[in-house]
Design a protein around this nucleic acid. Structure first.
Length: 370
RNA sequence: GGGUCGGUGCCCGAGUGGCUAAAGGGGAUGGGCUGUAAACCCAUUGGCGCGAGCCUUCGCUGGUUCGAAUCCAGCCCGGCCCA
């Protein structure tokens, strides 16, 4: 079976409605994938995650490799067993940690040496080890080991990063030895359109199961991001899933869907939820703010999530103020539900061929959040 | 009644002649977070002023000193010990 089926193509934009087929089930796109870096989406159970509408979840190779380690994950029934999640899982290769843990690593031509952020132990990650590790962790979609560059980034570094990312991608493809898993390639190149084009041109002949746009949402800002996505997404094969890594704010997602992106992941709904920031259709709420002290209304009127059905803002604010776990739990559930409801709306608008107009309205309403 | 230790900003608490509008916590208020080193991090927190700056503040009152939260005297209040 083809890994990706295109179901509808919006006629007023590049937005698409599709399905990704994985060993643990289908994923309706455009899709938002919550992040469960170390084997769990922080603060909620898989059952709660399911009720938000999530179909697929992320985990991270670098973090699982450090703890508990590949053998232990295998012994616990691979990632699906460990996470108690029988749906699709995607693992990031550790390429993001090349960026996020840059003070703890050294990038070489063949791979990256990390000083473990836990005990300083040397961890070497390259295309082969990242792929073999992911083969064994057992996710349904695995990612090439890439170099996620920072922003701003000197041009010569950007060029080198693209070279390495392309070279490593070939090595990942060669090392990949688990035919139950889809392997996605990643296009790098910062906000340099020529580099993005070069990188895409070199990645496509390698015939990956899907293609990601990496190296964005690293501080470049909404305009740079969207310009780069608008340039890059159309370069990728129409019959393969396109995945914008690490994005993002709702408005970033809507604009990127418009550019033809199918898949997203981001820590924002979960992390910000833990930090009392609630996403709503009327813009964000900072639930620690004193204005909510005695507010008995839900975070979002009409939201079917457990938090909105059972608690008012004042109670949730109280939970945050006294440090009760329930605050982070409730807002995580709400935010993930918000994102899933947004994706559902997006899919429905594409099916009705009304996406573009809807997106215009959404973006004008949320432009302040960019 | 005698002795002794102490009374500092919203709270706790450091400071014991000038660099002190006063360390550090807590609390409060506001902000940030984008393929998670994040249930975390940052900022503000006496008043007035855009600002230089001015005013008020370390129990109360008075004193010493160029200068006092800091030294002295009296008083008030609290803890402990003795009677």
């Amino acid at each position: 079976m083809k890994p990706f089926d295109l179901k509808n193509q919006d006629t007023h934009s590049k937005a698409r409605r599709g399905v990704v087929h994985t060993a643990h089930g289908d994923v309706q796109t455009p899709v938002f994938m919550p992040v469960g870096t170390r084997g769990t989406v922080k603060g909620i159970t898989p059952e709660q995650l399911r009720t938000t509408g999530a179909e697929i979840v992320l985990a991270n190779t670098y973090h699982m490799l450090l703890r508990p380690g590949t053998e232990v994950v295998e012994a616990l029934g691979d990632l699906h067993g460990l996470m108690s999640w029988d749906g699709p899982i995607l693992t990031d290769s550790g390429g993001y940690q090349v960026f996020s843990l840059s003070t703890l690593n050294r990038i070489g031509e063949d791979g990256v040496e990390f000083a473990s952020h836990i005990d300083g132990k040397k961890i070497y990650l390259d295309a082969k080890t990242a792929t073999e590790t992911q083969n064994r962790l057992g996710a349904d979609i695995i990612m090439c080991f890439d170099e996620c560059t920072p922003w701003p980034c000197p041009q010569e570094h950007l060029v080198k990063a693209v070279e390495r990312t392309v070279r490593w991608a070939k090595q990942c493809k060669d090392a990949h030895a688990n035919d139950k898993q889809l392997l996605f390639g990643i296009v790098q190149g910062g906000v340099d359109m020529d580099l993005r084009s070069d990188c895409a041109k070199q990645m496509i002949p390698m015939e990956f199961d899907g293609y990601a746009i990496g190296g964005l949402s690293v501080g470049e800002g909404h305009d740079h991001m969207i310009r780069t996505v608008n340039h890059t997404a159309p370069l990728l094969p129409e019959d393969k899933a396109r995945y914008l890594m690490g994005v993002g704010m709702p408005i970033d997602i809507v604009e990127s869907v418009r550019a033809g992106v199918d898949m997203f992941d981001c820590v924002l709904p979960s992390r910000n939820g833990r930090n009392a920031y609630a996403f709503t259709d009327d813009g964000p709420l900072r639930l620690r703010n004193s204005q909510y002290v005695t507010d008995t209304s839900p975070i979002e009127q009409g939201c079917p999530c457990y938090a909105c059905q059972n608690f008012g803002k004042g109670t949730i604010r109280h939970f945050f103020n006294v440090g009760e776990m329930m605050g982070p739990i409730l807002v995580t559930i709400h935010n993930l539900t918000y994102f899933q409801r947004l994706m559902k709306e997006i899919r429905s608008q594409i099916e009705n061929n009304t996406f573009n107009e809807w997106a215009n309205e959404f973006c004008s309403k949320h432009k302040d959040e960019a």
